[in-house]
Write a protein that binds this DNA or RNA. Structure first.
Lengths: 234, 234
DNA sequence: GACTGTGAAAAGTTTCACAGCT
DNA sequence: AGCTGTGAAACTTTTCACAGTC
């Protein structure tokens, strides 16, 4: 059941509903967004696939191909207007909206997440925090009052929360994920080292520094392996 | 001991390129290790590709294929002895060794990392911390005395540090990475949202929660997309 | 009977190379 | 002249399917 039907054309500024964009392409778009943002900050208004590729360590052809899934954003012979491409990509990714996010688990890690200033500038607003420890409930962390877990469903609905960050002890991961899914949360950023099972339609991404380290040691362990300075993201 | 297929460096023309293990396979091995560890904790001594696949949400064929790059670890008709497979995989990944790790940057994030208890049990020992802020130097975080950046080279050598975790402000990322590379560090876990350039032979993996969120919003933004509950790791 | 290990096929992804626009 | 957008080719990764072993 493959087939990549690419029968779409896009009027500039119009919402795209591409049929089947490979997930690997979607995963690269946020990086393009970030690089374009940096270029704009440097005052660069026009770029091209060559320059973008150099920044991102990706081939120019790949950038052009990736963009071609969504429309024609460049001008032949000239390249891309940074501001325009950035706007389009943000719109495609849904980053022209603001997203309300809940943090579940306010231990050491949850605390660090709630105090991390990096989410807000990108439109992700941590608006609620939950913990099942009665001693924590009511306290404020990063300007947010910690609520008990039984308030989850109501708050998710009333505050229009679609994304959750899970930072609970491993043993509670699956149960918390189940509760989130039941409340209608469809995107979960999982900081625990557990592979939570979710129904179709719900997405989970994991942040797992230990796994990242463990895949690098393979290349350190033995000099016999290919030693390419390859980068992995996210 | 399992024979690790090796990549021979052959004179040009006489290409005998022995089979090279795809990086995507290496990236999955740590997850296999984790699942096997869990099975063992539950007292399960024998498993099979079906069960492992269910746990990991991966096809049984993929697990068998991945393992086949390194040897024959199972018994036909019976499956895999968990303890045995775990030992082999850890050895392949270099996880039978202990690794000394330095943390660069002891701001909010670096602090959280130094206090995170998840690295040690897996053999990654945070043994040194560096910061360029004189006010921080000398303080202890997580039992480690913060050193000035100019002590980097000496300490990396004397403490046999091969892995570094970078948690400095974005603007300093490239400069810090350059210093690490110059000291001989060959694996870097990058917590900054910057794509550092490294020479061949050095590996970088990035931890970037914002990128992870941004790739999920694509699927939230519009109901027209494929809605598979697919998991991304690390 | 149950399962692995593995060539071969299928599917997916990247790169090439060039027509065509500016 | 310089660059995009894109089919087609090359390459990579996954899945199939089954011979072989326990």
């Amino acid at each position: 059941m493959a087939t990549i039907p690419r029968d779409f054309n896009v009027a500039p500024g119009t919402s795209v509903s591409a049929l089947e964009v490979p997930e690997v392409v979607i995963d690269r778009l946020p990086q393009y967004v970030r690089t374009l943002t940096q270029l704009l900050e440097e005052g660069i208004e026009v770029t091209n696939s060559q320059q973008l590729g150099a920044q991102l360590q990706v081939t120019p052809a790949q950038i052009r191909k990736d963009l071609s899934y969504f429309g024609r954003f460049g001008k032949q012979g000239r390249g891309y207007r940074v501001r325009h491409l950035l706007t389009e990509l943000k719109q495609i990714l849904g980053l022209d909206a603001e997203w309300n996010v809940a943090v579940i688990g306010v231990g050491r890690l949850g605390n660090a997440i709630l105090n991390y200033p990096g989410f807000n500038p990108d439109g992700f607003h941590l608006v609620a925090a939950f913990d099942n420890n009665p001693d924590n409930v009511g306290k404020e962390v990063g300007g947010i009052a910690i609520q008990p877990m039984n308030a989850l469903a109501d708050t998710v609905t009333s505050r229009d929360i679609t994304i959750a960050i899970v930072a609970v002890p491993s043993a509670h991961t699956q149960s918390v994920v189940d509760q989130l899914v039941a409340c209608g949360v469809r995107a979960i950023l999982n900081y625990t080292p557990i592979n939570a099972q979710v129904p179709p339609g719900v997405r989970v991404r994991s942040i797992d520094p230990v796994l990242a380290l463990q895949s690098m040691t393979y290349y350190l362990a033995d000099q016999g392996h290919t030693a390419n300075g390859h980068q992995g993201a996210d």
